[in-house]
Design a protein around this nucleic acid. Structure first.
Lengths: 185, 185, 185, 185
DNA sequence: CATGAATGAGGCTTCATTCAT
DNA sequence: GATGAATGAAGCCTCATTCAT
C-alpha cells in the first residue's frame, strides 16, 4: 500500500547534520536539504512539518546517542579517558549545540517537547560527568581544590580542541594527557 | 535639540556586539540594529554599505584589541596566566568567531579585505600562543610530549569553560590551575 | 474486523456540511475532511476527483431537499408560514450559498453541470416564493404596492434573522409575525 | 525627507473592500491587492505587517462609519426609516461581516485589538437599534409582543434584501414599508 | 548626512492533486 | 477501491538594499 519511500529518517538526519555543520542554523533550509536529498521541498514537510521540528528531533537523537555512550564510558576502567575518546567521536555535538539559542522554542508543541528533552539530556550529561569526577575525587585521583562545576566545564570544553593533523585516537590521547595533568612538564 | 541624530561609531560597534551575542548571525539585522540605535535603517548604509562590511569591520576591531592585549600578556611574568585572564575578559570572542563561517566572504571587496585581516589576526593569536608555549617549554615549565598545536588548542579551548557562579577573577584562577596541572589531585 | 474502511456517501455529505459551516470555503480542505472521516486523503479522490465537484454535488443535494420541502410548504394552508418554518429548519442554506461565489466554476465539466443545476434550483426556489406571494396577492392577503422581487427578497432575508434564545418553533412564530405585519404595533 | 508615498491608506482600504467583496476572505491576498494598487507585494507590508491586520483595521474603520451614521439616524424624525436608508448605503457591511469567522484572531496583538474593537462596535450597533425600538415601543408605534432581540434581528436582516432593479432610494422605501407593516395588504 | 518609501529575492508552509502499490 | 508517498503551485512573510527627497 502506498508507494515506496524515497527517503528515510536516517538519510534525513544524516543530511541535516551535514547541512547544519556546514552552514549553521541560518543556512539550514528545507530548500537546501531537499536538493541534497533529491526530493521536492514539500516532501520533507510530510516528515517534519516545521524546520524546527526536524532540527530539534535530530538533536535529541544525537544527544541520546551520546548519553548512552556516556553510560558505557562511566563503567570503564578510566572513565575520564573514555569520555575524552567519546568527545573525539562526537566532536560535532558542541557545534550542534551552539545552534540551540537560535531555535524558536515556541514554534510548535513538538518543538517544545524536543527542546525540553534536550535540556534534560544535557542535564544528564553534566551530572554524569560530575558523578565520574566525584567518584575519582573519592579515590584521590581528581583534585578537589577547584569547584566541581568548573572541573566539569573543563572536561566538556575539551570537545572544542580542534583536530590538527591527528587521527581521532591520537587526538584523544593527547587531549587526555592535557586534561589529566595540564600543561606542566 | 531636535537636530538630526547622528550615528556614533562607538555605539554602532557596541550594539553590533550585543546584538550578535544575543542573537547570533541569523538574528543580526540592520532592522534590529537601527531600532536599537534609534535611527532609520537606511542611515546605517551611509556608514557601511553592506551587512557583512559592518560585521567584519567590527570583528577586525575586536580581534585587534585582543591581539594588542596578548602582546602585553606575553611580556608578563606568567604569560599563560595572563592569557587565561585575558580569556576571562574576552569570553565572547569565541562566540563571535563562530559567526565567521556564515559570512559571505565575496560580498564586497571591503569584506574580502576585512576577512583577510581577520585571518591574519587569528594567525597572529595562534602564533603568539605558540611562542609563549615554546618559551615555557625551553624553561621546562611546559611539557613537550604533546604537539604544539594541540597544546595551543588546549589553551584556546579554555575560553569555552562557562562562568558558573564566580567572578571573572575566580574563574581565571580556577581555570588557570586546571590548564597548568590538569584534573589530577 | 479490520477490513479497509469504505467511505459512506451519507457521512461524506454530513461532514462536508459541518466543515463548510464551521470553516467556510477557505477552511474546507480534503485534508480536514479525510481526518474527520478517518480515511486517507487520497481516498476521497476515488469518489470526487476535485474539491469543487464534491462541494457542488453536496450543494445540489441540499437545494434539492429544500425545493422538495418548498413544494410541500406551498400546498399547506398558510404557505408563508410554512416557508418561515422551513427557514427555521434550513437556517444554514443561506450560509452555504455564500460559498458559491468562490467556487471555480470552470474547474471541470462535472462542476459546471452541478453549478448549472444549482442555479436552476435557486431559480425554482425564487419562483416558488413568488408563486406563493402572487397567489396570496390575489386573495388580498399580501400587499401589491411593493414589487414582487422585493417581497420575495424580504421573505428570503428572514432566514438571516439569528436564533436568540428560542426554540426553532418559537423563532418561526416570532419571525412569521414580523414578516406578516411588520414592526407596527 | 524620504520619498513621496505612492499609495495611501484611503486607497488601500478602497481596494481592500473591493477585493473582499469580489473574492471573499479566501481570495484576498496581498498579491492580488498589490497588483491592483500597482505596487510590489512587500510594499503593503510596510503598512500592515499581516493580512489580518489590514482586513480587521479596515473593518473597524467601516463599522465606525456606520455607527457614527447610526447616531445621526437615531436623532431623526423616523429613526427606523433612517436606519433602513443607512442599510441602503452600506449594503456591503453584512457581507463584510461574514468574513469575520474566518479571521485568525490570534494572528497578532494588533489583530486582537481590532477584533475586540469590532465586537464592541457591533455591540453598539445592536444596542442602538434596540434603543430606537424601545423608544418607539413607548410611543406605541412598535409592537411589543415579540422579543426585542428578534425585532432587532429583523431590522438588521433587512440589509440582506438584495437590490433588484431599483435605485438605492427606491430600495429603501420599499424595504421600509415591509419592515413597518410586513407583507399584509 | 538622515530619512521614509519601495522593492526583490529568498525562505516558510499548506494544500490539491497525482502516482504506484 | 484504499492508501501512503511525492510533488508543484500558490500564498505568506522578512529582510537587505536602493531611491528620491
Amino acid at each position: 500500500m502506498g508507494r515506496a519511500k524515497t527517503i528515510d529518517e536516517v538519510q534525513l538526519f544524516q543530511e541535516t547534520e551535514k547541512l547544519i555543520l556546514e552552514s549553521g542554523y541560518a543556512g539550514f533550509h528545507f530548500k537546501a536539504l531537499s536538493e541534497r536529498l533529491g526530493v521536492a521541498r514539500s516532501t520533507i514537510y510530510n516528515y517534519y512539518s516545521k524546520k524546527e521540528e526536524l532540527i530539534t528531533a535530530f538533536m535529541v537523537h544525537l544527544l541520546e546517542q551520546v548519553v548512552e555512550n556516556m553510560d558505557r564510558a562511566s563503567r570503564s576502567d578510566d572513565p575520564v579517558h573514555a569520555l575524552i575518546q567519546l568527545w573525539g567521536r562526537y566532536a560535532n555535538i558542541h557545534q550542534m549545540m551552539q545552534v540551540m539559542p537560535y531555535i524558536d522554542k515556541e514554534a510548535s508543541p513538538k518543538v517544545q517537547k524536543s527542546v525540553e528533552a534536550m535540556f534534560q539530556l544535557l542535564q544528564k550529561m553534566r551530572s554524569k560527568i560530575k558523578d565520574i569526577l566525584i567518584e575519582e575525587q573519592q579515590h584521590g585521583s581528581v583534585r578537589d581544590d577547584v569547584p566541581l562545576d568548573t572541573l566539569a566545564g573543563f572536561v566538556m570544553s575539551a570537545v572544542q580542541i580542534p583536530y590538527r593533523h591527528q587521527s581521532e585516537e591520537e587526538w584523544a590521547e593527547e587531549v587526555y594527557k592535557l586534561i589529566r595533568s595540564g600543561l606542566s612538564a
